[in-house]
Design a protein around this nucleic acid. Structure first.
Length: 424
RNA sequence: GGAGAGAUGCCUGAGUGGUUAAAGGAGCAGUUUGCUAAACUGUCACCGGUGUAAGCUGGUGCAUGGGUUCGAAUCCCAUUCUCUCCGCCA
């Protein structure tokens, strides 16, 4: 959620940012926010004034009672009743306006960083970096869903039977490879200074609002029947909400968290050939890294996180590219976002395996996540997160790119974790 | 699941309807000091008003949400959580 102060202090910046994000009628939205804000403040001033009179009168009644002047006290009570009505009415109005304002703010996305390119859709995203080599496979190279069948390491039909589409089984070396990837990613994060966290896989509604999944992406999360709880769509939600309602001190920085969790996505999206196999699932495994930082550092930290993701992809010897999302494609919450994609040579497609974002103070404002500066001022912190990495699509690329007539070769760096060098 | 007790600021903790989030401690800042220690002073958060600002000032918050009352940390109702005992249990 954007802060009110940015609307008051720099509404042109807000309008420009919302235009870049292809929001309709930003001018109208901004004026509406400012109007509600003005109304709320003047109403509150009136309410506070009336409440003040009320408090003074109560005090007076107390004194009269004490001195035994019951008659005067009763008269004062009569006077207070109309004040009481007025306070009640004004409070109600103020609260209504405040709620209306908050609801409106919830619908307004974050402002893109000035370096975010203009653009409508994924077509306008900018490739900022490429690495690794795309393997040249023979014509008859297989996609991972066929390889999975051939080597009996993944079973989609079984998932359909036991749960439903989008919930595959990993078997034998397939299962071990998943576990190896999780361990590899967690240990790399640890080496980079991240604290490992085992977080709950279920969160409450407040946490959903805190990181911005609610109300914007209600449909993406599985809600648990007859409760206000949700299955997490990413570890970002529990990890970042650890710091909800917290005022940090200078000495608490840097905050670097890493967590492995399964991720659950209801994904009311399309189904078909382009989401076959592991490409899009209702449940998948992911290691997530989260940073909480002072504003002046957050963009350096974003680069640091990208460098970490990049090193993982290089160690896994995967062909990858880093993409800067354009204004129209960047998520609701993010100010700047890089996607990392790997090339999966069997299906000849680029697959997104990581998304690294700086939310600036957008989440922190909802979370009430603040810190005290050296000067003693309290201000909003910046939050960042990134996948490091999402397992199924990495697995897809590993299986497809490393297939040979004699089996699928496992990259060196993973061998100590899975303790085999080939799937055959 | 049953019975009981409880929830007050960063921590400890007083407060059973009438000025006040007492008091102490920690941390931080300032003053003093050759340095250190000590001492002294200040220091909860949020929303407003006023002011260029320092500041001055109103309101709110004692787990959460309601209620009673002129007035609620205090009384009533509901909810959540914590602790103790019992039961059950990976």
């Amino acid at each position: 959620m954007l802060t009110l102060s940015i609307f008051r202090e720099n509404k042109d910046k807000v309008i420009r940012g919302l235009h870049k994000k292809h929001v309709k009628n930003p001018e109208e939205i901004v004026e509406q926010v400012l109007l509600l804000d003005r109304q709320r403040r003047s109403l509150q001033a009136e309410r506070d004034e009336t409440q003040n009179q009320m408090n003074a009168l109560s005090k007076e009644i107390g004194n009269l009672m004490k001195s035994g002047n019951v008659e005067e006290a009763e008269k004062a009570k009569m006077r207070s009743s109309s004040l009481k009505e007025k306070v009640k009415e004004l409070t109600e109005q103020t609260e209504n306006l405040e709620q209306e304002l908050t609801q409106l703010l919830y619908t307004i996305p974050n402002l893109p960083h000035e370096s975010v390119p203009e653009g409508q859709s994924a077509e306008d995203n900018v490739i900022v970096q490429e690495g690794g080599t795309i393997p040249s496979l023979p014509e008859n190279a297989l996609a991972h869903w066929d390889l999975a069948h051939q080597y009996n390491i993944l079973d989609f039909e079984l998932g359909n039977k036991v749960t439903g589409a989008g919930f595959p089984f990993y078997k034998g070396k397939g299962a071990k490879l998943v576990r190896a990837l999780i361990n590899f990613f967690l240990e790399e994060a640890e080496k980079a200074g991240y604290t490992e966290i085992q977080a709950p896989h279920i969160v409450n509604e407040t946490s959903g609002y805190g990181t911005g999944q609610l109300p914007d992406k209600e449909g993406q999360m599985y809600k648990i029947h007859q409760t206000d709880l949700y299955l997490i769509p990413t570890a970002e939600v529990p990890l970042t909400n650890m710091y909800r309602d917290i005022i940090l001190e200078e000495k608490d920085f840097p905050i670097k968290l890493a967590g492995y969790t399964p991720c659950f996505r209801a994904e009311a999206g399309s189904w078909g050939a382009h989401v076959r196999g592991l490409n899009r699932l209702h449940q998948f495994d992911k290691v997530e890294i989260v940073r909480i930082e002072r504003p002046e550092n957050s963009y350096d930290v974003l680069e640091e996180m990208c460098a970490h993701v990049q090193s993982l992809l290089e160690k896994l010897e995967l062909p990858y590219r880093r993409i800067k999302l354009c204004g129209g494609d960047i998520s609701f919450n993010a100010a700047l976002c890089y996607d990392f994609e790997v090339f999966s040579a069997g299906q000849k497609k680029w697959l997104e395996v990581s998304s690294v974002s700086n939310f600036e103070s957008f989440q922190a404002n909802r979370l009430k996540l603040r810190y005290r500066t050296k000067e003693g001022k309290i201000q909003l912190a910046h939050t960042l997160n990134g996948s490091a990495l999402a397992i199924p699509r990495v697995l897809s690329a590993l299986l497809e790119n490393n297939q040979t007539p004699h089996g699928i070769l496992i990259p060196k760096v993973l061998q100590p974790y899975c303790r085999f060098d080939k799937i055959d």
